[in-house]
């Protein structure tokens, strides 16, 4: 296990390094400059030049990148250009918000998805199976803002059951915060449900068809026991991979939900920073999403290795 981790970590570091380089290079293509973005179109060019100079944004691109990465590897995320204050608290607050929303969505969708997949597999070929597969498939492909709008119209404005903003009043307790996050989390549940259910169904089908399950049934064990003991674990294996692959999205890709429900997460932080030429903020946001992606992929691999001895023996997954 430790060996696997040690082998994979350098790769992860290289991936993140390349990502930071790509974002920096891409950032050079953004129209305008940070001085203009802060001071607005009507400001005097001399003032714009002065601000760019103060911020160091008028230096050669590679010098700026060198300074940034030098600080980053020492754990310093630099100062925001727009807010002229350390980036870390902004990223920290946004990440915490994203994790809360992503967490609520996860807690709802993982059990639902696995349950749906297993039920579908146990009813293979029947109407219930088809219904689950079809609903899962459809829910996955409908954009979040479409389902979000319909949910807002029905539950927020029509029935007035839920608030239609994800941001609770200041000082709200955990329960209230949770209440505010339910409606925004549902479109995410829709998106991810199909993936998980599909993988759980496939895993279950495979397990049900396997020799050991058949043997167990032939031995006269009750079906419920067979399912609980053998099938569930096998159904979970592929599901873990899917869950891990969706983590990046569930934490960093929620710009739409954050826009629709007025929520300050990491996705809208990245987008705002890009539009404002706030390069240190943009890099910090991107690196945060990158780290989460790399870590969740790594965690999934470790978990798979732990659950499945064949992979552990086989080395690189």
């Amino acid at each position: 296990m430790l060996g696997l981790l040690l082998r994979r970590l350098p790769y992860a570091a290289v991936t993140l390094f390349i990502l930071s380089l790509l974002v920096f290079a891409g950032g050079q293509l953004l129209p305008g400059d940070v001085g203009r973005a802060v001071l607005g179109p009507l400001a005097d060019p001399r003032a714009v030049a002065a601000l760019n100079h103060q911020l160091g944004a008028d230096r050669p691109a590679l010098v700026q990148y060198g300074e940034w990465i030098g600080r980053f590897v020492r754990g310093d995320m630099s100062q925001s250009f727009a807010f002229r204050a350390p980036v870390a608290p902004f990223v920290g607050a946004a990440l915490w918000n994203s994790l809360k929303l992503g967490g609520v969505a996860f807690t709802l969708v993982v059990p639902l998805g696995i349950l749906g997949g297993i039920v579908a597999a146990l009813n293979r070929g029947r109407l219930l199976d088809r219904a689950i597969v079809l609903v899962g498939l459809s829910a996955t492909v409908v954009p979040e803002f479409v389902s979000g709008i319909v949910l807002i119209l029905v539950f927020g404005i029509g029935l007035k059951l839920f608030p239609i903003s994800a941001t609770p009043p200041p000082g709200a307790g955990a329960a209230v915060q949770l209440y505010y996050l339910v409606l925004p989390a549902i479109p995410l549940v829709f998106i991810v449900f199909g993936y998980i259910a599909r993988m759980a169904r496939a895993g279950t089908v495979e397990a049900l068809d396997s020799d050991y399950a058949r043997t167990a049934v032939l031995k006269g064990l009750p079906r419920r026991d067979v399912v609980m003991r053998h099938v569930l674990r096998n159904a979970l294996l592929p599901t873990i991979t899917v869950v891990a692959s969706q983590t990046g999205y569930l934490v960093g890709g929620l710009v739409v939900i954050e826009t629709l429900f007025h929520y300050q997460g990491i996705g809208s932080l990245i987008y705002t920073a890009a539009r404002g030429h706030d390069f240190p903020m943009l890099e910090a946001g991107i690196m945060t999403v990158g780290v989460i992606y790399v870590l969740s992929t790594l965690a999934a691999d470790m978990l798979l290795a732990a659950l499945n001895p064949r992979i552990r023996a086989g080395g690189r997954a």
């Binding site: 991936t15 993140l16 990502l19 790509l22 990046g248 999205y249 960093g252 710009v255 739409v256 999403v289």
Partner: peptide
């Protein structure tokens, strides 16, 4: 490089 780009959600 491909791996690095895939670390970002498609929409971002």
């Amino acid at each position: 490089i491909v791996e690095a780009v895939l670390a970002l959600p498609l929409l971002i």
